[in-house]
Each structure stands twice: as C-alpha cells, then as structure tokens.
Design a protein around this nucleic acid. Structure first.
Lengths: 346, 346
DNA sequence: CTGAAAGCGCTTACAG
DNA sequence: CTGAAAGCGCTTACAG
C-alpha cells in the first residue's frame, strides 16, 4: 500500500504538491503525478485525512428495529442518498430500548459527523450528547418532548389517527378501540390523540378499556387485541397504531376465531407488502417510507455542508388506503358474541 | 474537547504515561491521571488511534436489499454481536446490482477492517479487492463460484429445494413449476437444482416453460407466475425461491382469480411474518435468519482477532413449515382452466 | 516506571 | 506554482 510520500518521490515533487494535485489545484507536474498515482495504485488514507480535517465521513443511523419494514425502508432511503455524498452509514439498532440508545449514543457522537435518529422515547438524552460533541442531529419518524430545536422528518401522525377514526366513524362504528404505541413516543402519542380526539369530537365516549397502550411490537399487538376481545362490551372496530402490532392483532383475531370485517373492522397504521393479499385485504394508513429516509439524509447533508438556518421540520402526509378489512357496522347487536359461540363448538 | 496532552499537563506527567495508563499498565500517577481524565472528560480520539494502529473499528455489511425481511434480519444479527465488540457496522445496499457492488467495494475495502457480504452474483470481483487490501471477507447467504477460500454462512439451499419438491410430490403433484432466482447467485442456482433434481429423480419431466428464472424481486415473481398461468398446460404446483417473489406470485395468482390451493399449490422459500395470516396460510421452507447474521459476525470477529485457520463454511438447515397453501392434487384434470373460465365471466 | 522523540499519512499556512 | 515544516492525537520503541 503506497502513501503520498511514495507518489511524491516517484513524481519527483514534494508531498505538498501531490496533495494539491489531489484536490484539483493546478500544478506543473500534473502528468508525472498522475502517472505515479496510477503506477503505485495510490489511494489517500482516509484516517490520516480525518485526523487533520476532523471530518470522519460517517453518519450514524439509529433506529429502534431494523426488522420493522418501515425502518428498513428508512434505512434504504438514507443509504441511497449517502451514495452521492462522501459519507458512510453506520447502523445501530436500539431494540426500542431507551437505555441501549443512550449507551450507544454517548460514545457514538464522538465517532461520526452527524446522526439520524428515531429516538426510542421522547425523554432520551441524545441531544445533550450530540450537542456536547457538536454533532448535527436529525430526528426521523419520532422526536423529543422539546424537539423543535432539531431538524426532523415526521409524518402527520395526528392526522393519520384522525383519518383512521373518520373512516371507521363513516362506516357507522360507535364502539371504537385503539391499540396505541408507547405514549412517550411521538407516533405513539400523536396517533393516539388524533384518533381519540376525533372519536370524542363525534360525541362518542371511548372507555378506558378500549384504549390499549402497547409497545409497537407484534406481541404487544397480540395481547392488546386479546384484551379487547375479552371485553364485556367488545368494540366493533379497531385501529392499530403500527404495522407490527397490526400483525399481532390479526393473529389474535384469527386465533380467537373472530372474523374480519364481519365481527371487527380493523385498520392499521403503515402499509405492509402483504396487506393487499390478506383475506380480507387490510385497510391501512400509509405514507412514503423510503422518502422519509431520503429527506432526513438530505437535511443532515445540508447541516454537514455548514448550513446554520433554524431547525426545519418536514411533515409528510398520510393517506388512507381503503381495502377490505373495514366494513359498515352491521345493524344487529352483539355479532361477535354470537359468532364466538359458534366458533367454540368446533 | 480535550486531548491526551491536556490530561498529561493537568496530571503533571508525560503523554506517554497517560497513554500507558489508558491501556491498563501500572503507573505511579494513576490517581492523578484518573482525576484529570474525569475533570476534563477526556475521550481518546479514535481517528488518531486508527492512524497509528491501522485498525479502523469498522466492519461493512453489504446486502442486496435491506428491505427484504431476510436481509433485515441478517443485519440485525450482525449488529447485535457487534455490540460486544469494538467494531461499528457500516451498511451498504447494492440493490441486487453487481455493478453497484463492485463500485462500492473497490473503495470500501480500504476503509474497513472486515466485510460481510451477500454478493449480488457469483462472478463478482469482491474477493480480489478484499485480498488486495488484506481485509477478511465473510460471505453470507450467497457465495462465489469458487468461494471455498472464504468463511461463509450459508443455508442448505439444495436441501431446501429438495424439501419443497418432496412435499409437492407427496401431495401427488406431477406438473411442477419453479420460480427461480438468478442462476448466477448461490441460492438461485442451488434451490433450483435441489428442486429440479428431486422432481426428475421421481421420474418426472420438467418442461422448460415450468422453469421460470426471475430476479428475487416481487415484480419478477409476479411476471413469472403470470407466465406460468398462461401456459397451455399450466402446472398444478409452484415453488417460489424467495420471499419477495412469493409475494409477487401470490399477487399474480390473486389478480388472475386463481385459487390457492384449489387451482395451484404454492410453497415459498423463506418465511414471512404474515405468512400464517394469509388465506390460505402460506407453506414455506424456513431457516434461522437472525442467526445467520450472528454467525457471520462471529466468524469475522475470529479473523479480526488474528485467526488464520482454513476457511470455514457453516451451513444451516432449512425446515418445511406446512401450512395450507399446498394441497393434494385434485383427481380431475384441468381444474384451473375450468375455474378460469368461470372467473372470466365475472 | 517514565519521558523525549519519532512516526502513522495527510493538509495547510508560511515563505519563497 | 512549489517546498519545508508544523501539526492533527495518539502509540511505542528507545534510553534512562
């Protein structure tokens, strides 16, 4: 492996000249240097460069769960724009743990030029670490209790919750339930509020038991749906606040022999590749997933280029995708209880 | 941000002594140094360390598609074991493009200590780059035409193809089809061979048109299934060689009004979170996905620790998960043609 | 055990 | 335009 000194010697110039040539300046020995570089297959040492410049050519992407299709898409988006930049992507998975996140970030901030983070909760210490290290931070999908001071790419979670409620309301449902994500996360709280506010604005009371708070995981969705099914007065329609919990809820409904949409209408937040193939095809609130990653990386690149404008928050819209898992409320009462009896006889 | 010199000055020792203290050697001024480090919140500069030591504390994970749930799981596995190591994970997405992969790796090999790669094809130049840079390389899921010289974590793809064929054969099917991945990838070729060999060993001819070679993408699976449905003599059972193509195939079948498993039995390679929820629930060949990532990273860590044993290949087993998308062949002939006519009348 | 010094590979004022 | 030199922050023989 050859160094700049080797090139300089072969081209009979100083290393300073080689360095200048590399950055595009005009030098007399250009041809000789070019030849020497080819001959020696010289490649500048990034580490040495970083030591001088202080720039590390690395950006960290910290997500709660890479196996969640939404975050996988975000990562793909971030990675794709990193290609047009000199930055590499470090990936970190916090497993939805604020503790893991904090531990990772305390060190991480010193090893990268910028961070794209979907914080595990809204109370996390990340910004303190980032600010101490002077590293720009972009929030994606989730933000902090007082996250206004940071660039963010969010989704209109409140609006998405509202869209879900409106759709269910329009179909005539009056006993509505939500399987919410953690209320100390942005999407957990906002989707919850959007849904509940809309239901209540329609003059409908949502009892405590119909507001299940879970953890954005499949198992949480499963448990929450089970709880809902066990209610003395079960709901007729359910909104599940993320893709993984929707999968869990569907499994619970299936396991208990509940029929969708005959017994329960179900609407999920975030689309799934297989959603149209489910029977019934799943109705969802969707958004541009990869695009969220793309925008976050662009925002970060802007900061890395030295931009010091006030923090900017980009809020993407959600769209209702009507498929077949939500149906008009059936006139007669207690449909689920009746069918449940039948199911038990099998 | 303070440096080792700041600490040395405050503790009234030389920087050499601080450095020695850091690496655990016994030094007289230990207490003073410890105090100075706390006081100044000193953190060693990784870049400077790397410049001296040559180790970069970075490992690259290069996959064809992070949004493929299998690779997302692999990445999760790799990331999780990186936590117990001093290495960070660089993530690269090649989008199944050999060209993109080659471009990325030519540079990448100089910026990391090791590489975990799922090559886009078996003809790629990666090992040349890696060897030139003296960087250990571990293949995951896929290997090269002559990949024996590298550590690898593969799956018994041939056996998986065989299991799929055997299951279909046992159900009485005689007109079998495969939607294969690219035959210049390990899993594409091996699953193909395992399936076709087994079918032929049973004395059954597989006509050319029933061997659809696609691209491991959803769209490829869709097109291939469409082609199969259009055959004068359509198959009665289909094996789809990866999760994304299975989704595509299912969409095609659904769009064309074909019924599974009445008209076609369908078995896929790789499980999907939603597979049990499909109607019918999807029968698949599954494997330990996260575990593959875990093992690959362990293998790499071993090399990074200096191990020079001959290359090791770990081959994981596949398992048949019988659900409901494969059914016994129905006695009468031309079921699909009959139902297709009915479908067209709608 | 400890310090002075060299060196990892590069960039960039500073003189010329 | 060009070269000699300093310096980025650290580690490690080399003397003591």
């Amino acid at each position: 492996l050859s160094t700049i000194s080797d090139v300089a010697r072969l081209a009979e110039v100083s290393i300073a000249t080689v360095s200048r040539f590399q950055r595009g300046e005009k030098v007399r020995a250009a041809e000789r240097i070019r030849a020497a570089i080819d001959e020696l297959e010289y490649r500048p040492n990034h580490t040495a460069r970083s030591l001088r410049s202080g720039i590390k050519h690395a950006v960290a992407v910290v997500v709660p769960d890479v196996t969640n299709p939404f975050f996988a898409a975000v990562v793909k988006g971030v990675e794709s724009v990193s290609r047009e930049s000199p930055y590499n992507i470090f990936l970190y998975n916090t497993d939805e743990s604020a503790q893991a996140e904090d531990a990772v970030l305390a060190d991480l901030v010193w090893e990268v030029d910028g961070i794209i983070l979907a914080p595990s909760t809204e109370q996390v210490q990340t910004p303190v670490h980032a600010q101490r290290a002077g590293v720009p931070l972009v929030f994606i999908d989730r933000t902090l209790a007082q996250g206004e001071h940071f660039d963010s790419v969010l989704v209109d979670n409140y609006g998405g919750g509202r869209q879900a409620a409106e759709h269910l309301l329009e179909l005539g449902h009056r006993r509505l339930a939500i399987i919410a994500g953690p209320l100390n996360t942005t999407p957990g709280r906002e989707r919850f509020k959007g849904f509940v506010d809309t239901v209540q604005a329609a003059g409908i009371e949502m009892v405590e038991e119909c507001r299940q708070v879970a953890d954005f995981r499949e198992s949480g969705g499963y448990q929450a749906a089970l709880a809902l099914l066990g209610l003395a007065q079960p709901p007729t329609a359910i909104f599940s606040s993320n893709n993984l919990m929707t999968i869990g809820a569907l499994k619970a409904l299936t396991d208990m022999g509940a029929r969708v949409p005959e017994d329960f209408s179900l609407i999920g937040f975030d689309d799934l590749k297989l959603a149209p193939l489910l029977r019934p095809a799943l109705t969802v609130i969707e958004r541009s997933e990869v695009q969220q990653g793309v925008l976050a990386m662009r925002l970060l690149l802007r900061r890395l280029a030295g931009n010091v404008d006030p923090a900017r928050t980009i809020t993407l819209e959600t769209r209702l995708v009507k498929r077949a898992s939500c149906a008009p409320l059936r006139p007669p009462e207690a449909v689920w209880r009746a069918s449940r009896k039948k199911g038990q006889q099998r």
